[in-house]
Computed example of a mutant assay.
Amino acid sequence: MAQTGGKALVQWLVAALLIALLCVAQAVVICNVETSRLNLCRAAITGRYPPPPSRRCCAVIKQANLPCLCSYKSLLPAAGIDPKNALALPGKCGLRTPRRC
Rank of each mutant, 00 (worst) to 15 (best):
1 M>E: 15
1 M>A: 13
1 M>Y: 15
2 A>D: 13
3 Q>H: 14
5 G>Q: 14
5 G>T: 11
7 K>P: 02
7 K>Y: 13
7 K>A: 13
8 A>G: 04
10 V>C: 08
10 V>R: 11
10 V>F: 06
11 Q>N: 13
11 Q>E: 15
11 Q>I: 11
12 W>Y: 11
13 L>K: 11
13 L>E: 09
15 A>Q: 05
16 A>M: 09
16 A>T: 15
17 L>G: 15
17 L>S: 09
18 L>K: 08
19 I>K: 15
21 L>K: 08
22 L>K: 07
22 L>G: 15
23 C>V: 12
23 C>H: 09
23 C>T: 11
23 C>A: 12
24 V>N: 15
24 V>D: 13
24 V>I: 11
25 A>K: 14
25 A>Y: 10
26 Q>D: 10
26 Q>E: 15
26 Q>G: 13
27 A>K: 14
27 A>R: 11
28 V>D: 05
28 V>M: 01
28 V>T: 15
28 V>R: 10
29 V>C: 11
30 I>Q: 02
32 N>L: 11
32 N>I: 10
33 V>I: 08
37 R>G: 06
37 R>E: 14
38 L>S: 03
38 L>D: 05
40 L>M: 07
42 R>E: 05
42 R>W: 06
43 A>Y: 14
43 A>F: 03
44 A>V: 06
45 I>Y: 01
45 I>E: 00
45 I>Q: 04
46 T>M: 00
46 T>D: 07
46 T>C: 03
48 R>L: 14
48 R>C: 09
49 Y>I: 08
50 P>K: 11
50 P>M: 12
51 P>T: 04
52 P>N: 06
53 P>G: 01
53 P>F: 02
54 S>G: 00
54 S>T: 13
56 R>S: 12
57 C>N: 05
57 C>E: 04
60 V>Y: 03
60 V>F: 03
60 V>C: 00
61 I>C: 04
63 Q>F: 07
64 A>I: 04
64 A>N: 04
65 N>E: 08
66 L>S: 01
66 L>C: 07
66 L>G: 07
68 C>H: 12
69 L>W: 04
71 S>E: 12
72 Y>P: 06
72 Y>F: 12
74 S>G: 15
74 S>E: 07
78 A>Y: 09
78 A>N: 14
79 A>P: 02
79 A>S: 05
79 A>E: 04
80 G>F: 11
81 I>M: 00
82 D>E: 14
82 D>M: 10
84 K>L: 12
84 K>D: 13
85 N>L: 07
85 N>Y: 08
86 A>N: 02
86 A>G: 04
86 A>Y: 01
87 L>S: 10
87 L>K: 08
88 A>I: 04
88 A>L: 05
89 L>C: 01
90 P>Q: 09
90 P>E: 00
91 G>W: 05
92 K>Q: 12
93 C>H: 05
94 G>E: 03
94 G>A: 06
95 L>N: 07
95 L>E: 04
97 T>F: 12
98 P>V: 01
100 R>V: 13
101 C>L: 05
101 C>V: 02
